[in-house]
Design a protein around this nucleic acid. Structure first.
Length: 510
RNA sequence: GCACUGUUCGUCUAGAGGCCUAGGACGCCGGGUUUUCAUCCCGGUAACAGGGGUUCGACUCCCCUACGGUGUACCA
């Protein structure tokens, strides 16, 4: 058993963009594969053509790529067990369903949707505890267990629509082991005769999933908790096929919850929640656009790191992990049993941590493209200086503009609160004196400018705080930013003097 | 309704019967550094859902209740 090669798969259905919960499921699969030197496959489960959304599959692949989770086998990448899209595997499934019929584990059913509804209504009216197609009700329905063999044969020969249902045992205890939850016991009396093969010729999730996992030699099924209730069906299918010896181990992950604690996070939440639920921006066929972490300015490393710690922890106090490190540290047995709620503040903190890990040159490069979008171009040396001075006060690359726009544009307004507090009578005159000192300088680097200004303030007995803050107001427009003379050095003498002149001319003394 | 599943600070979590006066992180609050803002440093706030057992001893084991989640489709 322990000799078995680890092979896991992420098996989304292309009914829309992948949301962060899906990304986390993919990530845990990926990390488990890395940890165990195994394979990570991508399989597209598109057995429901009515829910197919154009672009969704591409979106899923792009998302995995952005996150750095390269799959070893999958659509567009190939592999020994292809194809990896269930619609492309369609011809393979029927024989498995028929095999189950032959062994008495499944049967043909001819009931129409109306008949099914009638059955459920009737059982409901009788106050039955369950309204299901199962061992006790199937005898009253239209199927190959209840109908005479010749009738069934003629219906099939006549091409009448049918489905193939699993014959769930009447009352049998199924004991299973889940890596996250431990032992799970269910009695089959609670389960129904699930449709395995649909009348449109496609398998349902249950059949396709089990058959493909078997054919692809999947060793561990790591999926969302919404599948926990169907684990017994799947286990029974493995038994019915005689594949129990190579049945994968199961691990059901607790779901990501909505921030208000009302249900699981779903695709439909879009960005109604005040934060993105998708890794990448998504434009629905309707034209509606949902935000993505990538477009919001998150580093993918921060996104992955943040998501990895939702429902898992390494057991140490380390919180910052590269994808590589996660692959070393990951352990399925340390996955928590309860659902996790995402915290935007923590996500921002992660991004800030990763932003600080970037080199100044990388940040300058990123800032440069942001500036370019604003029509601003500056030499890289200058941007490098600005980045060094402001990187400690930003969380996202896009924040650089808020923290550094005054390096490029003179303030258009002045913070009223600062004016009220600092711009006392005589301020303009003081600043003009400072301007006079600055105007006389030859060298204009931070040190050369700072010393004479301070000397002036001390010689005249001015209030250092008042002069400096007012000078900052003139240059920046508000009370923020790096060391004042680092600013003057970058914007230069001409611009510095111009801003002082404009401020003294425009700000009224309180 | 029924089945399954879960429940430690606001949030993510540590805790596998005595190491717990329940630890960390984010947030928040206070203080210090900074002539501004931010950073940084220091400190603080805040939780074992409730009730029964078992045990010398329960956050840890069992039962019940409450609350939450998922499932109950020819959807995945």
């Amino acid at each position: 058993m322990s000799e078995r090669r680890v092979r896991v798969r992420f098996a989304p259905s292309p009914t829309g963009p992948l949301h962060m919960g899906g990304v986390r499921t993919a990530l845990f699969n990926y990390l488990f594969a890395k940890k165990n030197g195994g394979d990570f496959l991508l399989r597209i489960e598109d057995t429901d053509q009515t829910r197919y959304v154009p672009g969704a599959e591409q979106y899923i692949i792009e998302s995995l790529e952005w996150c750095g989770m390269q799959f070893d086998e999958g659509p567009g990448r190939g592999g020994e067990c292809g194809p990896y899209r269930q619609s492309d595997r369609k011809p393979m499934y029927r024989q498995y369903a028929i095999e189950l019929v032959a062994t008495g584990n499944a049967y043909y059913a001819f009931d129409t949707p109306e008949e099914l509804e009638a059955m459920r209504d009737r059982l409901k009216a009788e106050n039955a505890s369950v309204q299901q197609y199962n061992a006790t009700t199937r005898g009253q329905m239209q199927n190959s267990f209840s109908l005479p063999a010749d009738v069934v044969a003629s219906k099939l020969a006549a091409g009448e629509p049918y489905v193939i249902r699993f014959a769930m045992p009447l009352a049998e205890t199924v004991e299973m082991t889940d890596i996250v939850r431990g032992r799970v016991v269910v009695n089959t009396r609670e389960l129904d005769d699930k449709v395995l093969f649909k009348s449109d010729g496609m398998p349902t999730y249950h059949l396709a999933n089990v058959v493909d996992d078997h054919l692809m030699s999947i060793s561990h099924v790591i999926r969302g908790e919404e599948w926990l209730p169907s684990m017994p069906l799947h286990v029974l299918l493995y038994r019915a096929f005689g594949w129990e010896a190579t049945m994968p181990e199961f691990a059901h992950l607790a779901l990501l919850l909505k921030p208000d604690g009302k249900g699981k996070l779903s695709k439909r939440d879009g960005d109604q929640l005040g934060f993105p639920v998708f890794p990448l921006q998504w434009t629905a066929p309707s034209g509606e656009v949902s935000k993505g972490y990538r477009e919001e300015g998150y580093f993918k490393e921060a996104f992955i790191n943040m998501i990895s710690l939702l429902g898992w922890n390494p057991g140490t106090e380390q919180e910052i992990f590269s994808l590589e490190e996660l692959g070393q540290a990951f352990d399925l047995t340390r996955v928590s049993k309860s659902g996790a709620r995402f915290d935007l503040e923590k996500a921002k903190w992660f991004n800030q941590q990763y932003l600080r890990m970037q080199t100044d040159a990388q940040l300058a490069e990123l800032f440069a493209s942001d500036l370019l979008a604003r029509g601003i171009e500056r030499p890289m040396e200058v941007l490098l200086e600005i980045v060094k001075l402001t990187k400690e006060r930003v969380t996202f690359v896009k924040d650089f503009w808020d923290q550094a726009s005054f390096f490029f544009e003179a303030p258009v307004s002045y913070d009223e609160k600062v004016i009220k507090k600092r711009w006392k009578p005589g301020t303009s005159a003081m600043l003009n004196e400072v301007a006079g000192v600055l105007a006389s300088l030859d060298a204009f680097d931070a040190h050369s400018a700072e010393e004479p200004v301070k000397a002036l303030i001390e010689a005249k007995g001015y209030n250092m705080g008042q002069v400096m803050n007012c000078l900052r107001l003139a240059l920046v427009g508000e009370s923020k930013g790096p060391h004042l003379f680092d600013i003057t050095a970058i914007i230069g003498k001409t611009e510095t003097l111009a801003r002082i002149a404009r401020a003294t001319a425009n700000i009224a003394e309180a």
